[in-house]
Amino acid sequence: MLLEGAAETVRLTALMLALGAAVGLPFGVLHVYGPRILRVAVLDPIVVFFRGIPSLVLMMIIYFGASEIGLDLSGFIASILAIGVRSGIYQSQIVRGAIQSVGSGQMLAARAIGMSKWRAIRFIVIPQALRLALPPWSNEYAGVLKESSLAYALGVTELMRQGRYIVARTFGNSLLVYTVCAAIYFVLVFLGIRLLRKVEQRFSVPGFDAAPQGRAFFGRDLESSR
């Protein structure tokens, strides 16, 4: 049963991350290359909003806001929307940072051989930026996985809720059950990060330093969801 919950947690996480990537990449690119007015008037306030509001509240707003306008979202969908978009905003910041550290020389060189601005972004800057973005992105993976536990509040039967059911049904030892839940999360975080490191190595380019030394066990970027 806990494994069923774990599977649901993995599904949630995957969908949240996917939605986040779909939002984050274009947002990140726009943030760097879009018009200044868009950045100041739209993107920055959105970032401030999403950094200041708890994911749990965001979930509630989306869930109940949808039913307000006659849209009946399941808890599953509402949590994915809330945390997915939240993650998208964070991911846009990762993408932005990565693009900025690619450096303007690359862009200049691409323009110099006659590429248009958008082609240069597409074929020169983004491939490099994505490599740079991988290490902080694995941190975001861990954050989203952990935050997926909040779907518990909307009745989604993910890992935590399965744990709760087991405790209720069997009058089981709750300390034991939740410790097992914690262990499952830990293993998922650990395995995911190992996997992403493999990906990093797979795509690493000699002389292109995407992974500086001295990284912490779970990624060096400390700004992570809980």
């Binding site: 861990a142 996985l145 952990k146 935050e147 536990s149 909040l150 518990y152 935590m160 744990g163 405790v167 030892n173 709750s174 300390l175 034991l176 059950v177 939740y178 410790t179 839940c181 914690a182 999360y185 830990f186 975080v189 650990f190 066990f217 779970f218 992570s224 809980r226």
Partner: peptide, 25 residues
């Protein structure tokens, strides 16, 4: 190190549940 990684590798929600629902057992 065990403390830091155990905390960073699990959701805050589980940690709260362990304290509030787990310890009574």
């Amino acid at each position: 190190t065990v403390y830091v990684e155990a905390i960073r590798g699990t959701p805050l929600l589980v940690q709260l549940f362990l304290l509030y629902f787990g310890l009574p057992s």
